[in-house]
């Protein structure tokens, strides 16, 4: 599991390096960039992912306490909040395209799409993984003593969350 997570971290570390180099070469474009994006959408992503991560952490705690039904409820809540991320993405993309913020809108927007779409792919994998873990929890595959699959998924989801916590201020606040 940690090998996969380190692959994810390495991938984003490279993308962040590209961001920093592009920002150093285009300071004006990156300074003006955040004003072109929706801060409400950026904050919405953050709150959805943080709340989803909190639900998954509570689900893991419930499973460790032997409360399988509570674990299932927390996982379902985590999935609903996790779905908030692609839902907000749809809203934001419609807004961006209406404002002409497409792939030809400059280096800041291209960097933004490159990093956030890569992150979106990881969120999709996470949501699929969450469905799998929810199903296995529902069918009683995890127990108080053996729930390594649930723990592995939780690790992946929290790291995906942490990467967003880096992306959010770099694009929506600092530029």
């Amino acid at each position: 599991m940690w090998v996969g997570i380190f692959c994810e971290i390495t991938e984003f570390a490279l993308l962040f390096a590209v961001f920093f180099v592009a920002r150093a070469h285009n300071p004006e474009a990156f300074h003006a960039g955040p004003e072109r994006l929706s801060l409400v959408a950026g904050t919405g992503y953050t709150l959805m992912l943080l709340t989803s991560g909190w639900c998954v952490a509570r689900a893991l705690h419930a499973m460790r306490a032997g409360q399988r039904r509570a674990c299932l409820r927390w996982m379902l809540a985590g999935f609903v909040f996790g779905l908030g991320y692609p839902a907000i993405k749809l809203f934001e993309l419609q807004r961006n395209f209406a404002l002409g913020l497409d792939g030809n809108a400059g280096v800041f927007i291209v960097s933004y799409y490159y990093l956030t779409f890569t992150h979106l792919v990881h969120v999709f994998w996470g949501l699929l993984g969450m469905l799998w873990v929810i199903a296995r929890t529902g069918f009683g595959a995890y127990t108080q003593d053996e729930h390594s699959g649930l723990e592995a998924f939780a690790c992946y989801w929290h790291v995906t969350d942490m990467i967003w916590l880096m992306i959010f201020p770099m694009f929506y606040i600092l530029g």
Binding site: P34, L39, G42, T43, T46, L47, L50, T51, W54, A57, R58, H61, F168, P169, Y172, I173
Partner: peptide
């Protein structure tokens, strides 16, 4: 866990305020 989540939400709102 609950307090950590609350702190994270408050910090995120504060970050949005800076933005």
């Amino acid at each position: 866990l609950d307090l950590a989540w609350l702190m994270l939400v408050l910090l995120s709102m504060g970050g949005a305020g800076i933005g």
